[in-house]
Nucleic acid binder design. Structure first.
Lengths: 337, 337
DNA sequence: CGGCGCACGTGAACCGGTAAACCCCAAGGA
DNA sequence: TCCTTGGGGTTTACCGGTTCACGTGCGCCG
């Protein structure tokens, strides 16, 4: 099959290329009669613009990029990315914009990808995920003037617009909830320390706990089940063992719960558990896990809208997402006395 | 920042555009001296080819496409896709080829995406996943002559090359293993019936069970935890209740195991459980799940290699992946007498 | 010594769009 | 009547590569 070009249409309509271009792009310069005729021919031939030619002309492809820098091992289980991508996708495909995906396991490699994408005119802009407290990507993207939206923040994003969720507030709500149930020693198994939102949550944890006069402790893990298990067992072996643990992702929460029960500690009797990000995983565990629930697809969709605006040269402000909700299930209860 | 073009290099080197192109693409027509000089300037300027211009010329972008047609809800939990993508990616990025990702929840929409991608010159080829027994995509892709590799099969793929895993053989091995443990009533909670590999496994189940003289039954679910749970409870309520269940994915296996235990049926005492696709999820469950393990990243990598060959016009044969292994863990045991 | 072939390059066409410059003709105003 | 205006086009350049048809100059051979 041959793909029709704008020339084929021009020939069929007996007009010039330029006229066809005007007609199909809704710009003045052709009579409405001719315009209709051209459009009819275009739809009859099933014409679609050659995205390469168009992009070559204005130097900007209609493709946005996403680099995911996490080990495939931990990536797989977490619904977060798939949901985020599906939210991004929904917005992009409605705008006929493609999403270029690349995976890497290295911060430096990720930066190299941005440079390459930029140099090769592969993408018009990128989504930045997993913001770090010291994030080398920001400077590079600003230097390249590659449009970018940070999913996270909103601090330390330089001049890049951020789409963010109030992690600190959500964590505070969790601690208040647990304290309200009567817990006085609350622990948190956090994600990697270098991630920005990990730090935000840690600070919120410390401050809220202090405000309420409860003990708090944060230990760091890497989002994997094994690390969650290890961290949990470590916490439970402490003399002043916590009566509640908040996990930074669902995988660690499920693993931690299983480990605790195996160690003979009942949930929620002797230990309350809260997971972050409510996914089907929380319902696979027994008991079902109380979880912090966010609309991740909407998060992605908002980020996509911002980035679309940005590449079109519009001014884009930081966007704050709706606040997370705490979904209470069987894994939280007042502590045993 | 301005991206250097081939013209900038030509000017600096005092030669014509054409000479630069020859030099940088390693084709004859320039002296090795000039070639070296041109290459030096190119690297000094950090020149990278404009992928759009290049693709426009030869009508084929260096991007491959993947459409995922599954509800985001079930997608998220299954590590399968992320691992597959990460395998594909590893191969593609080594070849400097991009991966365009799109999600949809509708077979027809998926076909529309292929047509659009084709018409817009967006991708040079596509990966076809989740092959169905009646798959409308095959005909469309052949009609469009859009290079495509089917991940699955190898039957019913038309003239498209397949990269496949011996699902039937693996299922036979599972049934033999269970029968060897002494199980005489084996059930299977399968994925959607319309998927090709579901059918292959079902046939293998029936034949192997018949050959061994054991009872077998297959019920269909949709890969979600809830559906796995429901199917499990249904099976366990039957008068001739199975003593072993094989699940077509890990999510249903974990959910089914939890549901069975909640219903007072011990695993593996009264019920043995085998999951398909060994992921971290199998280690999150208690007991750890016996599982059929495949190297999914290698699967994706092979598919990527095949597709790369195909778009370059090389002849590509069906590729059979290494056989899955059965990883025995705590969820399988001889049946209680 | 003239012609041929080869190595090395140049110039222009082309891929499929977009956009700016220009052209022609009819209508309207001074 | 002349000039302007503007609607409706056409022509042409351009985006940044690739490739093909041609020079050119040199060495070699008959």
């Amino acid at each position: 099959m041959k793909r029709p070009t704008i020339d084929d249409i021009a020939r069929r309509a007996g007009v010039s290329k330029g006229a066809v271009s005007f007609a199909l792009n809704g710009r003045p310069g052709v009579s409405s009669e001719t315009r209709r005729r051209i459009q009819a021919i275009a739809t009859e031939l099933g014409w679609q613009p050659n995205s390469l030619a168009r992009a070559l002309f204005d130097g900007r492809p209609d493709v946005l990029g996403l680099v995911v820098d996490r080990p495939a091992r931990t990536l797989g289980l977490e619904p977060f990315f798939m949901q985020l991508i599906s939210g991004i996708e929904a917005t992009l495909s409605a705008a006929s914009v493609g999403l270029l995906l690349q995976m890497t396991e290295d911060h430096e490699a990720e930066i190299a990808i941005y440079r390459k994408w930029w140099a090769q005119h592969r993408v018009a802009g990128v989504f930045v995920v997993d913001l770090r407290t010291e994030d080398a990507r920001i400077d590079v993207l600003e230097e390249l003037r590659l449009p970018a939206v940070v999913i996270g923040g909103p601090e330390r994003t330089g001049r890049l617009p951020a789409v963010w969720i109030d992690d600190g507030g959500a964590l505070a709500a969790v601690v208040e909830h647990l304290a309200g149930l009567g817990h006085r020693r609350i622990a948190r198994v956090a994600g990697p320390e270098e991630l920005m939102h990990t730090g935000v949550r840690t600070a919120a944890m410390r401050e809220t706990a202090a405000g309420l006069g409860v003990q708090s402790v944060t230990v760091y893990a890497d989002y994997s089940g094994e690390s969650g298990e290890r961290a949990t067992l470590d916490l439970l072996r402490r003399p002043d063992r916590p009566t509640a643990i908040v996990y930074d992702n669902d995988v660690m929460a499920v693993a931690g719960t299983a480990a605790a029960r195996e160690a003979g500690i009942s949930v929620p009797g002797e230990l309350s558990v809260v997971a972050w990000d409510d996914s089907a995983l929380c319902l696979l565990a027994r008991p079902h896990l109380t979880a912090v629930s966010r609309d991740i697809a909407a998060y992605g969709a908002d980020a996509a809208r911002s980035l679309l605006d940005l590449v079109q040269g519009r001014e884009v402000a930081d966007t704050r997402q709706g606040d997370p909700r705490l979904v209470s299930r069987g894994s939280t209860a007042p502590p045993a006395v």
